[in-house]
């Protein structure tokens, strides 16, 4: 049995402490230790995006982050996207546009798209497709997902839900996908 390391972090605006083995991924801790199973595992090697979370403003595949790296970080998971006042405009748009079928990739798409719209609520189709290229969906053909993100962007531009669209872990100065893509 490996030695466990104490980690102090913030998840969805709540301070969380957990013990992790050095080999455990953040995804494993979130799902199995903390019981937050909204973040999904599709490949465990950073290729499908189902486990997307936002850490200090950057969207990352949580399967490729070691749990001990979460020390002192500010993490947003799908469970933190809706608020007591209601669904986030993206969640509402996914429902209205039927942008999910089986739904397993949906949490990852919503967390990733939220990060985009907080920076660029006017993102066009090409930008959205570029941003979401790290999230695989096998059911929808992406058409309705892209439309839902466009619609949510419009809603957020109008101010509906803008107040709750940004959490502490929401917008950040840089983004991983910008670094990789630009």
């Amino acid at each position: 049995m490996s030695e466990k390391i104490h980690v102090h972090t913030t998840i969805n605006d709540t301070e969380v402490d957990f013990l992790a083995e050095s080999r455990q991924s953040l995804l494993e801790i979130i799902r199995d230790t903390l019981g937050m199973t909204g973040t999904k595992e599709g490949c465990n090697d950073g290729n499908c995006g189902a486990c997307t979370v936002n850490i200090d403003g950057r969207i990352v595949d949580s399967c490729c982050v070691l749990a001990v790296e979460a020390e002192g970080k500010n993490i947003l998971t799908i469970e933190g996207v809706a608020s007591p006042e209601g669904l986030h405009p993206l969640q509402q748009a996914f429902l209205e546009e039927a942008a999910l079928q089986c739904g397993i990739c949906t949490p990852g798409f919503i967390v990733a798209a939220k990060s985009l719209l907080e920076r660029e609520p006017n993102a066009d189709e090409a930008r959205i497709r570029h941003w979401l290229a790290g999230n695989l969906c096998r059911c929808t053909g992406y058409d309705k997902i892209v439309r839902a993100v466009l619609k949510a962007g419009e809603v957020m531009n109008q101010g509906d839900g803008a107040g709750r669209a940004t959490t502490a872990a929401g917008a950040g100065p840089t983004d991983q996908r910008d670094v990789y893509n630009d």
Partner: peptide, 12 residues
């Protein structure tokens, strides 16, 4: 079953 699936509450 939509709300469960967009909020992460649905159990797979």
């Amino acid at each position: 079953d939509g709300i469960e699936k967009v909020t992460g509450a649905a159990r797979y």
